[in-house]
Computed example of a mutant assay.
Amino acid sequence: MKAMVLDRPRTPLVLVNRPDPVPGPGEIRVRVEACAICRTDLHVVDGDLPNPTVPLVPGHEIVGIVDLVGQGVSTGRLGRRVGIPWLGHTCGRCSYCTHEAENLCDQPLFTGYTRDGGFASHVVADAAFAFDLDAPDPVALAPLLCAGLIGWRCLKKAGDGQRLGLYGFGAAAHIITQVALWQRRRIFAFTRAGDHQAQEFARSLGAEWAGTSEELPPVELDTAIIFAPVGELVPAALRAVRKGGRVVCGGIHMSDIPSMPYELLWQEREVLSVANLTRSDAREFFPIAQQAGVNTYTTTYRLEDANQALDDLRMGRLNGAAVLQP
């Protein structure tokens, strides 16, 4: 198999040849068709997240075909197209797992962080955490495995408010905009200063307003989701939401939130975070994405061009999602 490997954080990935992996009990091997690149991959590669299991194959928005099954896995899964997400395994025993909060498991494994991921021609996954997919286009499907699923979890946490602000208009925001509009919400998009391309992209998808994160929207927001990993956006979003409004932080990593006056939080405004995802999120989201007619906007790269794709994401040169194709 071919794989792009991270030997240590803050260094470029290296293309290597490895023996084809063999699935263990309860596992499957997947021939990777497409693997989207998530901002979390950047946090792993750039050393923002501590203690990755190195050497490591990053990537956790994986779509591919099951070509080998381990002991205890039905051979009926052979030849099936599956998706492999960030949450790669849970203990099933801790209080979180037994109370429908497996995303907070005490002993989890994460794809592309603590176990090898999809920047490769093949990957081994826990069969219980690989979702059967029916749609025909693996490139279009790949961003749904994290940008879509985490975006969906954020949208649920945001509540039912109609005036929704999205801070950071990348892969997750462009998917959730389409779902939210299908739900008849109003979208207000916030980007970094000078990113007119992202603002135009947001408007083209149906955003009612698009501006910079330093601006206030033309109306008070009911709720806001922050996808950009920038702590300064928390007080900015609190200024934009109404009394009783809610701000959801959707990233796994964020820079420090600066000191702010209590009046921004007062009047029962809330700040929430979203961590990981659950398998029930996927069971809810994939049918909804189909009903909403979600289209993912992608830029494809060869596997060996993963470093270029990561840099394009890092520097904000992409609209939508980057996708590697082995």
Rank of each mutant, 00 (worst) to 15 (best):
V30Y: 02
V30L: 02
V30G: 03
E33N: 07
A34Y: 04
A34E: 07
A34R: 04
A34T: 09
C35H: 10
A36C: 12
A36D: 08
A36K: 03
I37C: 03
C38D: 13
C38R: 05
D41C: 07
D41T: 06
H43G: 01
V44N: 08
V44C: 09
V44S: 08
V44Y: 08
V44A: 11
V45I: 14
V45P: 04
D46I: 02
D46Q: 14
G47H: 11
G47V: 06
G47S: 06
D48S: 09
L49E: 10
L49S: 09
P52E: 03
P52S: 08
T53D: 14
T53Y: 01
V54W: 09
V54P: 07
G59C: 07
G59Q: 05
H60K: 03
H60S: 06
H60L: 08
H60V: 08
E61H: 05
V63D: 02
V63N: 01
G64A: 03
I65W: 00
V66I: 15
D67C: 01
L68Q: 15
V69R: 04
Q71H: 13
G72P: 03
G72R: 04
V73P: 01
S74D: 15
S74V: 10
T75L: 11
G76T: 09
G76Q: 12
R77T: 06
R77D: 01
R80L: 14
R80M: 13
R81H: 04
R81Q: 14
V82W: 10
V82S: 02
G83S: 09
W86Q: 02
W86A: 02
L87G: 02
G88A: 15
H89N: 14
H89R: 14
T90Q: 12
T90K: 06
G92V: 07
C94Q: 10
C94T: 09
C94E: 13
S95Y: 13
S95K: 13
C97P: 10
C97V: 04
T98V: 14
T98R: 15
H99E: 13
E100M: 11
E100V: 08
E102Q: 13
L104M: 15
C105V: 05
C105A: 08
C105R: 07
C105T: 09
D106V: 12
D106C: 11
D106I: 02
Q107G: 12
Q107M: 14
P108V: 11
P108W: 06
L109Y: 11
L109A: 15
F110E: 15
T111E: 09
T111H: 04
G112W: 07
G112Q: 05
T114D: 07
R115N: 13
D116T: 00
G117T: 04
F119K: 01
F119M: 05
A120H: 07
A120D: 06
A120W: 00
S121N: 13
S121P: 00
S121E: 15
V124I: 10
A125S: 12
A125P: 01
D126I: 02
D126R: 04
A127L: 05
A127C: 06
A127Q: 05
